[in-house]
């Protein structure tokens, strides 16, 4: 019973919010080019579905590529850092630079370097830059948090560096890695959209392009429809990561065992 109400409560809240929005727009006579009602947005989504879906798939494709590249880059760097303190102290501060530099500030530079004809590659690079740091920071923390007694046990039994990495550090850090992945998948999407915005219209036909184009044409219903798809995409990716996390940790990690007596 509690479970059903947990699912129903946010749905009812959302329906109520949309109803208030609809009533507010029509009762206040707000023009459609300022704030469309939810029904207008739904109708626009229906009539432009093919266009919007195509754009969403482009954004999704770049987001997934960026996320996968960021995952392997961060895992590789975290492994290197775990094997060498010198490399960690030299390279980690450099990776922080990527984290603290706003993507919009470096986007023009990346665009110039890869060429304006390769805007999609620039978007991919920018998205990787935005997405990789949380995964690196979390994986690195996970590798460092390994139980010292377990590490001693491995050393006592003559474990090689590779055995310590594959049988201890990586499984131990898995919850940390997955937390980083959950943060990064959202950031990869944000990075892709921001980079699409900065790259400008015509360079990539992702969702950001659709949103800008709709804004320029004052087709605010379509703009909102694009925004809705973007939100839906973000939520779906996050839920997918959460499902993967639950599946991988379900039998042994405390975070997935809150209902156990």
């Amino acid at each position: 019973m509690k479970n059903i109400s947990n699912y129903l409560a946010p749905i009812i809240a959302l329906i109520a919010l949309l109803a208030i929005w609809e009533i507010f727009v029509y009762s206040s006579n707000i023009p459609i080019y300022i704030l469309p009602a939810p029904t207008d947005i739904f109708l626009s989504l229906q009539s432009n579905f093919k266009d919007l879906l195509g754009s969403a798939l482009i954004t999704l494709r770049i987001t997934i590529y960026a996320f996968v590249i960021a995952f392997f880059v961060s895992l590789f760097l975290a492994i290197v850092f775990s094997l060498s303190n010198i490399l960690e102290s030299s390279l980690y501060p450099i990776t922080v630079i990527f984290q603290v530099t706003p993507v919009v500030a470096i986007a023009p530079l990346i665009l110039i370097w890869v060429g304006l004809d390769n805007a999609e590659l620039a978007i991919l690079i920018l998205s990787v830059i935005v997405a990789f740091f949380p995964m690196l920071a979390n994986t690195n923390l996970g590798f460092k948090s390994v139980d010292q007694n377990l590490l001693d046990l491995f050393l006592l039994n003559g474990a090689s560096k590779w055995q310590i990495l594959s049988k201890l550090r990586i499984p131990f850090a898995l919850p940390y890695i997955l937390t980083g992945m959950k943060t990064s998948i959202g950031l990869a999407l944000i990075g892709t959209v921001v980079a699409e915005f900065v790259a400008g219209t015509g360079s990539s036909k992702g969702l950001a392009w659709t949103i800008i184009e709709s804004g320029n044409r004052l087709d605010i219903s379509k703009l909102f429809a694009g925004l809705m798809l973007l939100i839906l995409l973000g939520i779906t990716l996050f839920m997918l990561m959460t499902a993967i996390e639950r599946n991988l940790l379900k039998r042994w990690h405390e975070s997935t065992q809150e209902n156990r007596g």
């Binding site: 001693d152 046990l153 006592l156």
Partner: peptide, 12 residues
Amino acid sequence: GFVFQDATLMPW
């Protein structure tokens, strides 16, 4: 063989 104060098992 070494046994620590905590069982120090690998939860996974």
